[in-house]
Simulated assay, not measured.
Amino acid sequence: MNKIFKSRLILLFITVILLLSITLSGCNVQDSSNEVGKDQLAVHFIDVGQADSILIQFPNGQTSLIDGGNRDDKDLVVNYIKEQGIKKIDYLIATHPHEDHIGGLPEVINTFEIGKIYMPKKSANTKIFERVVKSIKDKGLKATVAKGGIDIINDNDLKFKIIAPNSDNYSDTNEYSIVNKLEYKNISFLFTGDAEKESEEEMLNLGYNLSSDVLKVGHHGSRTSTSDKFLKAVNPKYGVISLGKNNDYGHPHKEAIDTLKNNNVNILRTDELGTIRIISDGEKLILPKNIESNTVQNTTVEKSIYIGNKNTNVYHSEECSRLPNEKNRVIFNTKEEAEKSGYRPDKQCVK
């Protein structure tokens, strides 16, 4: 082997090694599968089995965690949050003091920087509830008592508020559940914890705007939640059910599934799909690719809106050729919402 050939062989070997090193390091650095784009909202329904845990990344850079799963889920929840590159939970919400909602929260509180904490005015004589309270106290924090009407975030394009509980005394702990409404531009989510029909009826009677694109179905799909009247007011495109496979409660109950199907709601279940992450730019929903085609036909869904004219009290479809000037417009999510506000349809463009 002459010296020139040997030198070229060595050079080729070094080049290959360098290329491999760059490629491998690039895979580690460039992997952006968990990144959320600028001005995007991301809602993660974490698969914690027969429990609830929802992570929200707001477009303003803040975060919220609604519930923390069971005690056995603490590492799963903590690791999932870390994988998103999150170091602070700005708004920690413990919907109600049942173990399958607060079980992992002590570990979350001990691991991350915590901003504000919201809990209902309901305690429990359980060790896990005592651990949650102790973790809050040990970190020098205090919980804010949650009740309907509290604004957590109230910006022009981003709103996150509490719309339940609305009473101080319920016979069932589930009814104390904190219910949150999230709105980002023209997209909205409703998170209901384990709220049941009594709380649903209160929200309806108090006149809250419940209309939402995505509903976190109450109480893991139990028949005690998601009344037909409530669901019609929410009118969601998607209903997410957080539950475990072959659970002892028979969730989701047939009655709840039938109600969802009868109202043309696309059902997304964590026991079938695992963790469900929904991203939005405020105008459309971007759904996970692992949703089967017989559940949802398209992974990107445009938001349908109706545009009212403040001067004429007539509402139009967004494709209508007779839309009012921007300053005279009012936006409605459904025909029902427009008509309840005293607007009548433009008969030529609203079918």
Rank of each mutant, 00 (worst) to 15 (best):
K3H: 11
K3Y: 11
F5M: 07
F5D: 11
F13R: 04
C27F: 15
D31P: 05
V36Y: 06
V36M: 09
G37S: 14
D39C: 01
Q40V: 03
D47S: 11
I54A: 01
I54V: 15
Q57H: 05
G61N: 02
G61V: 04
V77R: 03
V78M: 09
V78N: 02
N79V: 01
N79S: 13
Y80N: 02
K82I: 05
K87D: 15
Y91A: 02
A94G: 15
P97I: 08
P97V: 07
P97F: 11
P97T: 10
H98Q: 13
E99I: 13
T111H: 11
K116R: 13
P120K: 05
K127T: 14
I128C: 02
I128L: 08
V132R: 01
K137W: 01
L141T: 05
L158K: 03
F160H: 09
I162N: 04
I162H: 08
I163T: 04
A164V: 01
N169G: 00
Y170A: 00
T173Y: 11
S177M: 02
V179E: 06
L182I: 10
G193L: 04
A195W: 01
E196N: 06
E198T: 14
M203F: 07
Y208V: 06
D213L: 06
G218E: 02
H220W: 11
F230Q: 00
L231V: 04
A233I: 03
V240T: 09
N247M: 06
L260R: 03
L260H: 07
K261P: 00
D271E: 13
D271R: 02
E272P: 00
L273D: 09
T275N: 08
I279A: 01
D281W: 06
L287A: 04
E292Y: 10
N298G: 02
T300W: 03
K303R: 15
Y306K: 01
G308D: 10
N309T: 06
H316S: 02
T334D: 09
A338P: 03
A338E: 09
K340E: 15
S341F: 10
S341W: 02
P345I: 01
C349V: 06
